[in-house]
């Protein structure tokens, strides 16, 4: 029997609890991430990426709650652990970087202190030792003159610098898994690449696996070994990153790939018009019957409007969820 993967999400369901009924905001989501692996999760705004990430962290809050399925860390189910135990995993074994670097840090606390907290919490360090180590942590994420910067408050730092601070916090205790929820979306394009490179480099050095969440398929496919594409609360396709580009199987993925500007082979044909996917993601309470993508899908047939497509396994352990895939 082979060792269990680092993280295994199986048939995860996240409920949005309403006054009278519950809606599944995320349903039937499964994926596995091996030790040190980078795994991408892609999808439009509102498809459920962030809440999937939060459920792994055990940070879902009312009105959202895990409604079924399992989340396992090295084979151990963590979604049902008592709060005190899952808390000890947070920060030490699974860490998270959030979408919004502007608001993710406490505005009234110097950044050095916010890093130092990690050493105090998880390694029993005293504050002065933790403060010294915070300087080191800042140096690692290549913040210039870290001795001075530790005393800065978040508003004194640029968005990129704050995200570096977030990375320093997340990687402070050498976690096994880093959940990065759109870590660069809010940043300038020029800074984005720096931040992504920094994350990859530091994680590779420590053997930290990354769950990289983004709406940017290009970014994810560049740095991840495998990619899952989400649509309206479901994983509609999962494949190795290069395969997603070469042979996207799901019409939605195909749309995403087609809308990538100037990538790989297509660059040779010059700048072609971006193929946008018309329409928007439906609200949780208004998911259509049958395949959830059918109102926007130009390949939709009658069966798509009544029957929810099951997951079809693909060769390399991937899957696609479409009646007419290929």
């Amino acid at each position: 029997m082979s060792a269990p993967p680092l993280l295994e999400v199986e048939n995860l369901r996240i409920d949005l609890l309403g006054d009278d009924r519950r809606h599944a905001a995320v349903e039937g989501v499964s994926f596995r991430i091996g030790r040190g692996e980078t795994f991408g999760l892609v999808g439009e705004s509102g498809c459920g990426k962030s809440i999937t990430a939060l459920s792994i962290m055990g940070l879902l809050r009312h009105p959202l709650a895990i409604g079924g399925g399992a989340i396992r860390l090295e084979g151990q189910e963590i979604q049902s652990l008592p709060p005190g135990q899952i808390r000890r995993l947070r920060g030490s074994r699974i860490a998270m970087i959030f979408q919004e670097p502007m608001t993710a840090l406490n505005p009234l606390s110097p950044v050095g202190r916010q890093i130092a907290e990690m050493f105090v919490l998880h390694q029993g360090a005293g504050w002065s030792e933790a403060g010294d180590r915070a300087v080191e942590a800042l140096r690692q994420v290549r913040v210039p003159s870290p001795e001075r910067r530790v005393k800065d408050y978040p508003h004194q730092l640029s968005g990129g610098m704050r995200q570096r601070v977030m990375i320093a916090i997340a990687l402070a205790c050498g976690p096994d898994l880093l959940v990065a929820d759109e870590p660069t979306t809010a940043l300038d394009v020029t800074v984005q690449a720096e931040i992504v490179d920094l994350m990859r480099e530091l994680c590779a050095a420590n053997g930290t696996a990354i769950l990289m969440i983004s709406h940017d398929l290009g970014l994810v496919a560049n740095i991840c070994r495998r990619v899952a594409v989400m649509y309206a609360g479901r994983v509609v396709e999962e494949q190795a990153a290069d395969a997603i580009f070469r042979q996207p199987q799901h019409p939605y993925t195909q749309g995403l790939v087609a809308s990538l500007p100037l990538l790989g082979g297509r660059a040779a044909h010059g700048r072609r018009r971006l193929a946008e996917i018309a329409g928007t993601v439906p609200a949780i309470s208004a998911y259509p019957a049958g395949c959830r993508f059918n109102p926007r899908c130009d390949r939709a047939t009658d069966v798509c409007r009544v029957e929810d497509p099951a997951a079809t396994p693909l060769g390399d352990g991937g899957l696609v969820r479409c009646h007419h895939h290929g």
Binding site: L59, R87, L89, R90, F98, A104, N106, H122, I169
Partner: peptide
Amino acid sequence: DFVRTARSKG
């Protein structure tokens, strides 16, 4: 958001 960050630190 920063309270969520604090919780994510464990």
